[in-house]
């Protein structure tokens, strides 16, 4: 274990689970949005709005729980602009999504001016009693805050809903062929707006986790590209929820590992270490999606504007 340079694997697993939470939340939200046939490139913007809204609410009220609620609401509010522009006014989704990111980054910077250097109220660990005292495993899995478990639960819930419920079936149908879904009498625009709002709330939640727990403080550009990684993970995970979790853990794991290696003074140049999470995550997911069966490919209506014609 020379390479690991004395890094404790249990601690590594524990910190990768934490590091991955924002990406999991944002990516699983975006997965639902894309399954409904909408490509929202504004994930980064919604995340950072969630980060500042969550931070501000938590600081003002003193409650981290309300902070997370605020983060989700902030992200959803921003996504509502996207929904209005793309679903009602039929703007181009790619351009609107990019604008949303730029707008979110700017707005968050404005909102956050008075919060620089402030400490947020601490979020407690979830008390799991004797479970957390198991040697090794306890450190790894059972000494986390509630959001870590919530993020896994969100993946499971999204998987279950998409696969086993009528809601999920209709959502997939809208993303697969919006003309046919419309002809059968489903409300394409309404379903998509709801999906977009869900995606916004999840991205906001992910952002709030960054500013309230992961960092925890407010700095400009706190998301540092996490939203883009979330977007990439959705694509390379072939729109499958559990692969999103895997991709996010892979990315989180390598991020944590390379930070530890930097700290341990490994003899690899820092630049290579810093780029490694991006490279390795994308490489692994590309290899995994290379033999994709047709049923796992992109939703057929992804990114297309729907107009209920005659």
């Amino acid at each position: 274990m020379d390479l690991l340079g004395g890094i404790n694997p249990a601690v590594l697993v524990a910190s990768l689970m934490m590091a991955s939470v924002p990406i999991i939340l944002a990516a699983i939200g975006e997965l639902v949005v894309e399954k409904s046939g909408v490509l929202n490139l504004g994930v980064e913007g919604m995340m950072i709005i969630g980060a500042i809204c969550g931070f501000a609410v938590a600081v003002e009220t003193g409650s981290p729980l309300l902070g997370f609620v605020g983060g989700a609401l902030g992200g959803a509010a921003l996504s509502l602009i996207f929904a209005l522009l793309t679903q009602v006014l039929m703007a181009n989704q790619v351009a609107t999504g990019l604008a949303l990111t730029l707008f979110g980054l700017g707005l968050s910077s404005l909102l956050g001016q008075s919060y620089v250097g402030v400490k947020p109220p601490p979020t407690g660990r979830l008390d799991l009693g004797p479970l957390s005292d198991i040697p090794g495993l306890g450190t790894m899995l059972f000494r986390h805050d509630a959001m870590v478990y919530l993020s896994i639960a969100a993946v499971a819930a999204v998987w279950f809903v998409l696969r086993h419920t009528r809601t999920g079936l209709v959502l997939r149908a809208v993303g697969e062929n919006h003309e046919a879904a419309h002809a059968l009498g489903y409300h394409v625009v309404r379903i998509r707006v709801l999906a977009i709002l869900f995606g916004g709330a999840m991205a906001g939640l992910g952002g709030a986790y960054l500013s309230l727990i992961r960092v925890p403080q407010w700095t400009d550009g706190i998301t540092a590209g996490a939203g883009w990684i979330a977007l990439a993970i959705v694509v390379f995970a072939s729109w499958r929820p559990w692969r999103v979790l895997l991709g996010a853990y892979l990315f989180g794991g390598i991020t944590v590992l390379q930070l530890n290696l930097q700290a341990a003074g490994a003899r690899i140049p820092v630049q290579y270490l810093s780029m490694s999470p991006y490279l390795i995550t994308i490489l692994v997911l590309v290899i995994m999606s290379a033999d994709r069966r047709r049923s796992t490919a992109a939703p057929a209506s992804l990114g297309k504007t729907f107009h209920a014609s005659r």
């Binding site: 009528r166 209709v170 149908a173 062929n177 003309e179 879904a181 059968l184 047709r294 490919a297």
Partner: peptide, 24 residues
Amino acid sequence: VFQHFSLFEAMNVAENVALGMENP
């Protein structure tokens, strides 16, 4: 029955039928 089918290619037959029913 539509002229240009109201079907979803990436779904199976049963799912397609369920989508066209009120209470499947």
